[in-house]
Design a protein around this nucleic acid. Sequence first.
DNA 1: CCCATGGCTGCGAAATCCGCAAGACACGTA
DNA 2: TACGTGTCTTGCGGATTTCGCAGCCATGGG
Lengths: 166, 166
Amino acid sequence: MASRSAEPRDSRESRNGSPQLDAVSLAIIEQLQQDGRRPYAAIGKAVGLSEAAVRQRVQKLLDQGVMQIVAVTDPLTVGFRRQAMVGVTVEGDLDPVAEALTAMSEVEYVVMTAGSFDILAEIVCEDDDHLLDVINKRIRALPGVRSTESFVYLKLKKQTYMWGTR
Amino acid sequence: MASRSAEPRDSRESRNGSPQLDAVSLAIIEQLQQDGRRPYAAIGKAVGLSEAAVRQRVQKLLDQGVMQIVAVTDPLTVGFRRQAMVGVTVEGDLDPVAEALTAMSEVEYVVMTAGSFDILAEIVCEDDDHLLDVINKRIRALPGVRSTESFVYLKLKKQTYMWGTR
DNA sequence: CCCATGGCTGCGAAATCCGCAAGACACGTA
DNA sequence: TACGTGTCTTGCGGATTTCGCAGCCATGGG
């Protein structure tokens, strides 16, 4: 059935270190984006592979860190009452600052950007005191941080992981 | 075993419409944040509940929209080569703008904030043309949008859903 | 040419998921 | 207080899924 196609089904590394994904793996990911608990057999039927093959591919994708299967929530509804996005401007090398932010447990999301901020970091805290401490005492104190600007979350309106299915 | 505690285990609505979660449901969510495919029996053992009880709680949490179990990836490694955070400032009511953003399939994340932006929106696109189209032609054209500022993603450094486990 | 590697398939055993029925408890009402 | 009502919990099969393993095929290197 699998209609062994001619296109490369490899796992070569592209130059940025990210594994190259073929269409079948993308289809598997798409299935799991709709329902992270979908059975392997059902996925196999959808993408044209055996159950075992799907299982192996999924395991590899997880091992490689290409995807993770997790429960996601709106922290605001689950007891974390203060959340904020912090824009950081840095002088010099971005990496040390990004690493330091990544190491903080309150920081859920770190991305390097082009624009008037060099780094965006999303922070999840229990309360105002906690948030203030993280931003004012810990982030602004990092060597290389020139300035920060905070955007406290008021309401989360959308949170999707369904790209690819459109 | 379940040591029926005295604290409320209800599903009342708090004033903002979010279901109130007890400690057991939080523990279940925590388990699924570590591994979205963890078997119900294993979760039950960890939180002190029967397999069936866990299953029903999970199903309810999913139905209520409190959490979702999905595969998450770094879009940059999966073929979506342009991603950006857009800060939007609005005149007048925020809701219509937030709704319009939410309706766009390229917009993955919408949050209302306090600060120099009223709304932050994360955008996932195939290429530069696509990104330009979304930001310049569609978002900036929305009635009520006063201005926007874009932060194109260069590299995703961290992406976690492990709050609560710390 | 031969061999090593990687990926897919098929299969049987073990574990898991799922639906159902019954018991326990809290709460609201008469 | 007594009595429903609704929710939560538990236990138990049967169907389904997961898991590990052996074999097969294609590709690429020596």
